[in-house]
Simulated scan of single mutants.
Amino acid sequence: MGQTAPVSAIAWTAAVSLAAWLWLLFCQGFFWRTDVRLPPHRDPRDWPDVCVVVPARDEAGVLPASLPSLLAQDYPGRAEVFLVDDGSSDGTGGLARELGESARRAGGLPLTVASPGEPPPGWTGKLWAVRHGIGLARTREPEYLLLTDADIAHAPDSLRLLVAAARTGGYDMVSQMARLRVASGWERLVVPAFVYFFAQLYPFRRIGRPGSRTAAAAGGCVLLRTDAAVRARIPDAIRHAVIDDVALARAVKGGGGRIWLGLAERVDSVRPYPRLGDLWRMVSRSAYAQLRHSPLLLAGTVAGLALVYLVPPVALVAGVVTGSSAAAVPGGLAWAVMTGTYVPMVRHYRQPLWLAPLLPFTALLYLLMTADSAVQHRRGRGAAWKGRTYARPDTVADEG
């Protein structure tokens, strides 16, 4: 009797986990599909002016692989690049000027390098840099702004395709989730799951659907109509946001703008995360902010991750060991559904399929990263990035 009760509890928990996976499979916007790419588009009759804004802080290590790709864009209209050096200590600004001069001699896009100084209270450094860049760009009166990170490399036709998609679909914002680097063993294990979890939270199909409240963007590549940015008060309205891409999308959509988000094929991140510690810091710096610094949401998230991702393999193993098919069958089925939904993302990243069944282990890592994020925030070290630590939004005085 003493052993039957725990096995029965595991069986019931496994059944709930299986029900959760069936709901995710069919009712969560088909988040697991990876065929949401740039919508159908055609070249416009006239190509609008575009200004590219690149915030950069201590990015000398990645600029040679990213900035030249922007300056070499094959764009039929007028385009210009503004790189905003956010107080770098590694010579980012000087290197950017050198790369810009080389591109100019080769006929590339013009580059302006500027620095706004330290951000005032209530602003993250990145958004303060974006504000400065948008201010410079608006003197050129562009129809579109391309907001892209300093570690993002673009194929030569990237800007052309983004503008054509925005014009054809009538979108105020078109964003692409850059393909992140997967070279080291830890990157292969963690990175595809990062995008998978993001899509599970913000199903791409729902984001572009008229009337849907789901809003998100990928901050590495956002084409934004200038008048939509003005209408949504970007970036002032989101000046303290740590997860600025989601806040940006919500502001634009809340202002009546049409937005779209999908996976990129010709936009890549060149930033390396070779060690687990690098990936850990990348996730933990913003995980608790994603939960709005709420202990209740944290507890719910930990419980949800355990139920959905950890229970299936535990139930399968426990059922096999104890001979309980009531635990093993739903546990095995839930693990199979989980693995099947992860396979498309593993394929998108061109990784071996044997990584798909390891998703429970990766989810455990994310659970620990999320818990660590909360601990770091409690210690006053939350949202730390490149020498800066940002306060919770409710501790920042409103500047009006």
Rank of each mutant, 00 (worst) to 15 (best):
P274M: 07
E98N: 15
A20W: 12
G108E: 12
A374P: 09
T214L: 08
R281P: 01
P393Y: 07
L22Y: 01
D86Q: 11
L145W: 03
V270E: 10
S269Y: 09
L298V: 00
R140W: 11
L355S: 09
L307T: 05
L276I: 12
A327T: 00
V317H: 03
Y171R: 14
T148E: 12
T148A: 08
V163R: 05
L297Q: 09
D58R: 06
D43N: 12
W385V: 13
Y171H: 13
L127R: 04
Y144A: 13
L310A: 15
R250D: 07
W354P: 02
Y171P: 07
A371S: 07
Y196C: 04
A363K: 01
G135N: 00
Y342F: 12
G122W: 00
F204P: 02
G211M: 09
W21T: 02
T34K: 03
E118V: 08
V190Y: 04
L296D: 01
D35L: 02
S269A: 11
V230G: 02
E399T: 07
G125N: 05
A237S: 10
D245T: 01
T226Q: 14
C51W: 04
R42P: 02
Q73S: 02
S102Y: 11
V190D: 02
F194H: 14
R378E: 14
G277F: 12
V222C: 14
L364V: 11
P44Y: 05
D90A: 03
D90N: 03
